[in-house]
Write a protein that binds this DNA or RNA. Structure first.
Lengths: 207, 207
DNA sequence: AACCTATGTTTCCTAAAGGAAACATCTTTT
DNA sequence: AAAAGATGTTTCCTTTAGGAAACATAGGTT
């Protein structure tokens, strides 16, 4: 799957790092207090570790002042936390309880010139992985205009037939039923069928 | 795979969000200027978008002042960026060019009382997904002490045989060769084989 | 060239942050 | 129970951040 093909269906989109960092309508003070408490520190101790006055910490925790970036750096380095951590709400609102079953052959078809994709679990959006079965129609290196490359990592398992895996930095290699590969998708890659029948694979992408 | 079984091998560990956020010994002003320029904005335009005075922005960019958290919020909301982005160095060091092939049956065995895992791509560490083939030995609900649940999301494809998928919030459902499921792993889940032979599945986890 | 305009910097003032110390509340010690 | 200590809050003062306007500097226009 190359970049152009992406984002056609919502179900094809993958939740990226950026999206995960939900915007912070943050109660910074509250959060800081949580962190300090979880470290078992008093204001005085935290003051010593950070170099900020006890009173200043108190005011920050009670949202009486808005700390400067400088102060925040002292906070993070002193308490051994990183900045995103300060903003990430501890109980992250992660989806839970979702489930999506795709019966055999009942995925969403998505054909291209070289691959015949069958998208799985398309009822779910905002998932971390994108699984799909693919029948490899390409028979030759020349069926591709260029390397396919995109963000993220990919896992591939051959379900039937035999394929050749071309990758930018390695020699081509043949894979047959049951074989699998894991690779960085930034590296150029492409597949061709070599078995009599077009090979079928399972593909899972994450970025 | 339950929590206890995790983290036995480095190759089983999955790269988490926290690890990705590399610490930032940041030149905040410099970074802000980069962002503003990349958006093609003048100080005046940025001022209008953020509600911060032109002069203030100038001083921040030249590190003459240390913005308050309040100011930083105006920055991030006005320029449509999120806070970690402000700190992340633009050229993120992401792995690329890795590749790991696992031949059929050549994965790393990892048996438990209910499952017989074969871990795939174990040569790679810090990957976003953890793929493994599993033979389901459990035959009954009672083979499990409790629901299996852990962080992240899971994708499952039945390679051979038939299984029953038990999930916390849904009725049990049977899956046969070629069927697949995607679900949140926080939701309790467990599998049993129902076919004559123990069923085999492919499992991919991401968190 | 003189003139305007757009963009960024600096100045000057006020509003707000940060620190020291007094204060208020608890808990522990004797 | 009184005294001492520890912890967090508030006050008061100094320093710094943030905004308005003046200033500097660069292109464009006539």
């Amino acid at each position: 799957m190359n970049d152009q093909e992406q984002d056609i269906y919502p179900s094809m989109t993958i939740q990226t790092d950026i999206e995960k960092q939900q915007i912070a309508p943050i109660k910074l003070g509250e959060r800081l207090k949580e962190i300090r408490k979880s470290l078992g520190l008093t204001l005085e101790e935290a003051s010593q570790k950070t170099g900020l006055a006890r009173s200043t910490l108190s005011k920050i925790e009670n949202e009486q002042i808005s700390p400067t970036f400088q102060a925040m750096q002292k906070l993070t380095s002193g308490l051994q936390i990183n900045i995103p951590q300060l903003f990430a709400t501890p109980k992250k609102v992660k989806a839970t309880g979702r489930r999506d079953i795709t019966r055999n052959e009942m995925g969403k078809p998505h054909p291209t010139s070289t691959y015949e994709h069958e998208l799985l679990a398309t009822q779910l959006t905002h998932k971390k992985m994108m699984p799909f079965k693919t029948r490899i129609r390409a028979r030759s290196f020349d069926d591709y205009a260029d390397w396919i490359r995109h963000d993220g990592e990919e896992f591939l398992l051959v379900l039937e037939g035999e394929i050749t895996l071309f990758t930018e930095y390695y020699e081509p290699i043949n894979l047959t039923e049951g074989d699998s590969v894991y690779y960085d998708a930034n590296m150029g890659h492409m597949l061709t069928s070599v078995s009599e029948e077009d090979a079928q694979i399972l593909w899972v992408t994450a970025s």
